[in-house]
């Protein structure tokens, strides 16, 4: 189910090919350019952690990747196909799931109605509910509660549940750990790693580097709209501290 991206083939043959690829992407808000040529590749079944200080352009990168924003230059490829300029709803239907920063839910819908919205991606409601409630029993207890009245962490779980249930080809997570207790964060990253093993490509944006580096296969450091370094987590430690403390 995860291979909904056009042209993507599951199996070992294609695994060398990145499922998600950004090439020379630049993006701007109004007249202000915030991404200056970003290159990123997330191989199939890999977790890439995108790290960097506040305002580096991480969220913007996610917006471009998920189709909410169109790059002013550069290309976005999914499974080799050029998807630059394809709308977010189209990508979502083809198996790209995005959990946006801090507002991944519809606050005036109930938990159940929120989950129903996930069915646009082509999975049926029973499946979504089964997965969501199994993963987060807490949501099961609160299915008729209006999502806006959930606690902050529960809201984040709900947003994440949607991502898990759809069984995505590409998963984009923006600040997953925001508002979650340390225990839950650990547990969620365990799940992230598990999903990746099913062949999903995952791009995680984080500010707290520590936990995510434990599960990431690759890490990229972004500063001022540029990717400063990409590599195995162990390789980029130095870059990372440099990025945060402004060397």
């Amino acid at each position: 189910m995860s291979a909904q991206i056009p042209g993507s083939r599951s199996g070992a043959a294609s695994s060398s090919k990145p499922l998600l690829e950004l090439r020379g992407v630049t993006a701007a808000y109004g007249g202000i350019q915030v991404l200056h040529g970003v290159d990123l590749e997330v191989p199939e079944g890999a977790v890439l952690a995108l790290l960097g200080p506040n305002g580096a352009g991480k969220t913007t990168t996610i917006s471009v990747a998920c189709g909410l924003m169109e790059p002013t230059a550069g290309k976005v490829y999914m499974a080799g196909a050029d998807v630059t300029g394809v709308g977010a709803e189209e990508l979502a239907r083809r198996g790209v799931v995005t959990v946006p920063e801090g507002k991944g839910i519809f606050p005036n819908l109930t938990v159940k109605e929120n989950l129903l919205m996930a069915t646009y991606a082509g999975v049926d409601m029973d499946h979504v509910e089964a997965v969501a409630y199994e993963q987060f029993p807490r949501l099961g207890e609160r299915r008729t509660q209006v999502a806006g009245t959930l606690s902050g962490g529960e809201q984040q779980m709900l947003a994440m549940a949607r991502g898990l249930a759809v069984n995505p080809a590409v998963l984009l997570l923006d600040e997953l750990s925001m508002g979650l207790a340390p225990l839950v964060v650990e547990e969620l990253y365990g799940i992230v790693a598990r999903i990746a093993r099913t062949g999903t490509s995952i791009l995680v944006v984080e500010q707290f580097a520590r936990t995510v580096l434990g599960v990431a296969d690759l890490a990229a450091v972004m500063v001022n709209g540029r990717v400063r370094a990409v590599g195995r987590p162990s390789e980029i430690e130095n870059e990372l501290s440099a990025a945060y403390f402004g060397v």
Binding site: G87, A92, V97, Y120
Partner: peptide
């Protein structure tokens, strides 16, 4: 509630 989130849902 949230227009772009609906898009992200497909």
């Amino acid at each position: 509630d949230d227009r772009s989130l609906l898009k992200l849902n497909g």
